[in-house]
Design a protein around this nucleic acid. Structure first.
Lengths: 345, 345
DNA sequence: GCTGTTCACATGAACGTTAATGAGAGAGGA
DNA sequence: TCCTCTCTCATTAACGTTCATGTGAACAGC
């Protein structure tokens, strides 16, 4: 079975005894075409099932109507919501999304940038791996607008949309720490990225504001298990393993902050299993407000991240940057909202 | 600042006094180029920062090295895992992924197909909305291979990779229903798609196998709230609202099956709030094995879906179909595994 | 010395579209 | 009547590749 020949502009033109150019102008809505022939062309194009060839179009126009979305891991709830929002906003603006996943490896990130260059996308939204700062330079040199999301590579003059993680954590901890709370632990991801650093900074800021000596605090890092092949989000099991090892009736935090709600699940279990209770003995503050957080027992106090807004804002910013390449750099940090529930008393 | 001119084959060729064609052959690894000049060309291309233009390439070759992935909702955990797996497998094979989201609307689905035709992608992986059966015909007519995932549009001769939902539910219910279980309810999504139908069919099959009269059973549909703008997965709240209305100490199922684990969260709360207990009064069987399922109290018995395998298998199938367009149609239904935990006693 | 073969490259055309320029017809004004 | 202007369309040339074909040189065999 031969590959069915695709209908081209010329096919439509030949049928009507017109030139391909006229058909092009008619279908792209330019003037210099009489309304009567335009109607004829539109009808015939529809009848023949004409579909424009985007490659030919972007070859000559230099625009692709595609933006690249570089994400570390779509299984992560936050990034999943981000993808949804980005895709929706792009779709609304007539753009398509090329999805590249890096799995937090800079080899993949480099390949992703290469792909984006080959495609000549009109713009890029990216969550940087941040292990190297020069990976995105290829795009910058090619004058392809880049908006960084969530993680910022400084010094490159790139637009940025993220969340004010440090303030979110700092304010939440201060708000949630009742009198008597002295020992505060932070259960973190073991990643060298700015969001982790920001949470730690917020944590320290809260300690200072509360007048708690840093000796009473502890930052624990849950090992990031890299099982290539399986697409895993954060793993409660790993958090549980670590927490179960450290938490005893004699040695436990008054308040445990977790880098995400999944870790909080592990903490809940660890606390329970050594005979302690949330929130009476250990208060727990999650991060991310995953759908299950409100349904745990006790319901988990957590920080709601505006993933939708961030995605939408990032697309808007990128489109504006595409329209005006020379506008000044923008850096936005959206506030995150503390959702107080029973796990913090 | 003028848009920096991109380096082309001709640029590299001119530098070396060669023809563009020779440079092309050298870089794409074809023979008819001496190894010495090839080395020269490769070095010069690298030095100039040459990046091939994929549009020009696919314009003439007819291949794009892009596959389209049409998904209803990336925020849904199952689809998120699917996206990860698909992207990884495509990346390994040198393909890029164009992501189109339909939000279960056929208007969007139609637009997605249109986009894919414009791009002339080499193949498509899609989760169909199933509200109309002709939406994908454009791709079929253009001889673009399509592999349907999870939901099947019959009669179109398309390859299919999915999960044997009916058997999974039927076997799980039979296995989980202890003596004394008479009244079994199923809490379903209100969507007209084949997976919902398959779960209902599996449910009925289990009733028959257990010898339970269908009068004792009930299929409830949680209204699908379409909040455009927010990218929501299944909502525990909606399941709770429905379950709380129907479950009373006098009128409750012995076993509640939920279409996903999020609904199970709502059921847990509804059961608890009317003074009943899981699993003593109401056993609960979830679906999807979300990461939190093992950490609920009691831990949720649920069905683990092989999202990774499904994604990988779908890509493999698509690539094989691209290589051999005339091979016979394949339809695969992967088994899903029951994970027994405490919520079923 | 002639023909034939192989190797390494060049040349020209094509892919389907858009942009720049040209050209003919009709209208309007002097 | 002629000139100019406008409107509508055609013609031609790109865009950056790849594919089919052409070509000259070197070399072998007779």
């Amino acid at each position: 079975m031969a590959r069915s020949q695709r209908v081209t502009l010329r096919d439509v033109a030949d049928r009507l005894g017109l030139s391909a150019n006229t058909v092009s102008r008619a279908l792209t809505g330019k003037d210099q075409v009489s309304e009567s022939t335009r109607a004829l062309i539109v009808a015939e194009a529809k009848r023949l099932g004409y579909v424009p060839n985007s490659h030919a179009r972007s070859l000559v126009s230099g625009r692709t109507m595609v933006i690249g979305l570089v994400i570390t891991n779509p299984s992560n709830t936050f990034y999943a919501a981000l993808i949804s929002a980005v895709e929706r906003q792009c779709r609304a603006a007539g753009y398509s999304v090329l999805l590249l996943v890096t799995e937090d490896s800079d080899e993949n990130e480099e390949r992703a940038v290469q792909q984006l260059l080959r495609f000549g996308v009109d713009g890029v939204l990216g969550v940087a791996t941040q292990s190297r700062s020069d990976v995105w330079d290829g795009l910058i040199e090619a004058n392809i607008p880049v908006v960084q999301i969530s993680r910022d590579i400084p010094g490159r003059g790139l637009d940025f949309v993220g969340i004010d993680v440090e303030s979110a954590i700092a304010d939440a901890v201060v708000r949630v720490a009742r009198p008597g709370v002295r020992r505060i632990w932070l259960l973190e991801e073991d990643l060298r990225v700015s969001t982790v650093a920001a949470r730690i900074a917020g944590f320290r800021r809260a300690l200072d504001e509360l007048g708690i000596a840093h000796e009473h605090s502890l930052v624990l890092k849950v090992p990031t298990r890299r099982t290539s092949g399986a697409s895993l989000p954060w793993r409660p099991d790993d958090a549980y393993a670590l927490a179960a090892n450290l938490i005893t009736p004699d040695n436990h935090p008054d308040l445990m902050i977790t880098a995400n709600d999944y870790f909080a699940l592990g903490v809940y279990r660890a606390v329970r299993e050594c005979g302690l209770a949330v929130p009476d003995d250990v208060r727990v503050l999650g991060y991310g407000d995953h759908p299950f957080a409100a349904y745990l027992q006790p319901a988990l106090t957590t920080i709601r991240l505006p993933a939708d807004e961030a995605g939408t804002a990032a697309v808007d910013l990128l489109l504006r940057r595409i329209a005006e390449p020379d506008r000044p750099r923008t850096s936005t940090r959206l506030p995150a909202e503390l959702i107080e529930r029973r796990s913090t008393g």
